[in-house]
């Protein structure tokens, strides 16, 4: 027994013996971080990198809010950056003064959630629409009516994201109602639409890719890059829809937590991913558009031509700031009533 204990202790202590300049603990969305990128960073700066993943901004926020998460870097989406800055969870590390900041695309510097980029740098840029398996349906898919007024062929074959805000805002777009409305009549219309649509949906899940690839559904609310990834690696009959009523855009951003232990390494990482050759590695893996200029030279040829990354003229993904607490409370009632 004693010998086993000693062996166990030796194994447990082994990583400590390995030489490393320091550590970096990253908390990012799943299927989003190219292992090559981490390897390159790790080798360049002699830093030991660890990564954990989450499946929604809210999961990440809850963990960070609880305190002492142990992470240095998180990758919140736009509205979540706004929330985290207001809650005082992010460190103001002034990435706009970093060497590689000049590479950030102009349109992404002055966005509402971090104007001037005092806290964050862009990781990936995308939008939230839905993907349809063209084997199951060949009509016009570029409308939210696929979800909210489902054609016969797709009834019971739809997955929507388990994301209160995304689903309710999509319904608002379909009804041409402004996002985060507090008008009760409009909220009632949204609620009625969702309740009427739900019997045609099969599930509420973030795992739309698996559901599509196992044939459990033919339509899933999804992100454009995820659709691209799935189309090239798994289900080649997927088509990404650009609803004429509009869709939600997002920017995911690298941020450093205020209680980070390895701030210097985290800053190195921020600067590192703003170099085009490194930013390209992120896009190559996650299949979203980069927020950094000059990545195309480092990306495979089919990348620029992918329909998922080329928003058609006339469709502008919209960035939606977080709704007020009052509206969130009403969204919550609509959502609970829908899911009961």
């Amino acid at each position: 027994m004693k010998r086993i204990l000693i062996a166990a202790a030796a194994i447990a202590l082994a990583p400590l013996a390995a030489h490393a300049e320091g550590k970096l603990n990253i908390f990012n969305w799943g299927e989003y971080t190219n292992p090559e990128l981490l390897k390159r960073f790790s080798e360049t700066y002699d830093v030991e990198v660890a990564i954990d993943t989450y499946d929604s901004n809210e999961t990440m926020l809850a963990k960070v809010q609880a305190g002492a998460s142990g992470y240095d870097i998180v990758v919140p989406s736009d509205y979540m950056v706004a929330i985290m800055i207001e809650e005082g969870l992010l460190a103001q590390v002034e990435p706009n003064t970093m060497e590689n900041f000049k590479n950030v695309k102009e349109g992404l510097v002055d966005l509402y959630f971090d104007p001037g980029r005092h806290y964050t740098v862009p990781w990936q840029v995308g939008n939230t629409g839905f993907a349809v398996n063209s084997k199951a349906y060949d009509g016009n898919i570029n409308t939210w009516s696929i979800l909210f007024d489902t054609p016969e062929a797709l009834k019971g074959r739809i997955n929507v994201l388990d994301d209160m805000t995304a689903v309710i805002n999509a319904a608002a777009r379909y009804l041409n109602i402004p996002r985060c409305t507090s008008d009760r009549e409009q909220l009632r219309q949204i609620s009625d639409l969702l309740v009427a649509a739900k019997p045609n949906w099969r599930s509420f899940s973030y795992d739309g890719l698996t559901l599509l690839s196992t044939g459990s559904v033919d339509v899933s609310m999804l992100w454009n890059g995820a659709t691209y990834k799935a189309r090239t690696e798994d289900v080649d009959s997927l088509v990404y829809a650009y609803p004429a009523e509009g869709l939600e855009g997002f920017v995911d951003n690298v941020a450093i937590l205020k209680d980070a232990q390895n701030v210097d390494n985290a800053k190195l990482f921020m600067n590192f991913i703003m170099a085009p050759e490194n930013a390209a590695l992120i896009s190559e893996f996650a299949k979203y558009e980069s927020g950094i200029k000059g990545v195309d030279a480092y990306l495979p040829a089919d990348f620029a031509a992918a329909p998922e990354l080329n928003t058609p003229a006339g469709v502008t993904p919209e960035f939606v700031p977080p709704c007020s607490q009052e509206v969130t409370a009403m969204y919550n009632k609509i959502w609970t009533n829908l899911r009961r």
Partner: peptide, 16 residues
């Protein structure tokens, strides 16, 4: 599709 109490509680701590 049909929440149980566990989901309901999780929802309050997260999105809601």
């Amino acid at each position: 599709n049909h929440m149980m109490i566990g989901d309901l509680i999780a929802l309050q701590f997260r999105a809601a």
